[in-house]
Amino acid sequence: MSSSVSTTTSAFYERSSLDLNSLRAQMEQVQTQISSGNRLAASSDDPLTASRLRNLQRQDAIAKVDAGSANRATADLNLTDSAMTEMINTLQRTRELANQAATGTLSDQQRTSIGNELAELRNNLVSLANTRDSAGNALFGGDASANAYTVDPVTGAVGYVGSGSAGSLELGDGQSVKRSLTGPEFLNFKSGTATTDVFAVLKNVTDAISAGGPGAQGAANAALTSLDDAITSVSTGQTVVGTRLSWIDLNTERQTTMSEARAQDQSTLGATDIPSAYTRLQELATVLQASQASFTKISGLSLFNMMS
C-alpha cells in the first residue's frame, strides 16, 4: 500500500494485513467477473460502458417488439394474399359463367341456373371480403373491428362499412408497413369512364341473366369487360401485397444483422474475457502465495526468539 518503510512492529503487521487483504479483494473481484460473466459489477466500474450496455439492452427490447410486429404483419399480409387469390379464382369462374351466358344458344332456364350460381359466387366474394385477420378483426375493413362489408337485406346491395385506411405496423427505426388493404382499395375499380365495384358489377350481371329475355345475352356480354377489369384490379392489389411482404423480409434481415452487431457489442463491452481474467487470477494467486510465505518468514524473525 505504502511506499515508505516502517520499522515498528504494529506498522509491519498492519501493512501486511492491508496488502494481503487488497490482494484477496482483487482476486475476489476477478472471481466475480468470471463466475457472473459480466465485466462490470456496478455502473461505477465503467460509467460510459455501463450506459452503452443499458442502451443496447433497450434497443434489444425494442427490436424484440419490432420483430413481433413484423411477424404479425407477415401473417396478416399472407392472409390477405390468400384471400385475394381466392377472390381471383371466384372472379374467373364468374367470367366463365358470364361468357357461357353470352352465347346465344342457351335457353332462359339455363340462364336462370347460371344466374343462381352467380348469386352464390357473389355471396362467396362477400364472405371473402369479410375475412378476419390474425387478431379476429376484419382483414379488409381498415380499423373496423367487425365486418368490412354488409349486405342490405332488402335490396341485396353490398356496402363498405370499414374505415378509410388499413392500420400500419412499425418495423423499427422509423420504418412501417400497412398490414393489409382496405376493400375499396382493390375491389373498387374504373371500368370505362365510370368507377364501380365488384359487387355492383356482379349484381347487375346476375340480375340481368336471372331476368332472362332478349336483354340477358347482351348484358352478359357487356359484363365481360367489367369482370376483366375487376380481375386486373385484384391482381394489382395482390402485387402490392407481395411487395409489402418482401419489404418486411428486407427489414427483418436488417434487424437480424443489427441484433447480431448488438450482441457482438454487448459481449465485447460487458462480458468477461475469460482467458485474460483467468491469467490475472493466476497471477494474483501467485503473488498472494508469495506474500503469505514471506509474511510468515518475516514475522517469525524476532530478536526475542534468539535470546534465552
Partner: peptide, 15 residues
C-alpha cells in the same frame, strides 16, 4: 506509517 515509524514500538529495538 511515517508517524508510526517514528512514534511506534519496534520489538527488535526493545529487545
Amino acid at each position: 506509517t511515517a508517524l508510526s515509524a517514528q512514534a511506534g514500538v519496534d520489538l527488535d529495538t526493545e529487545a
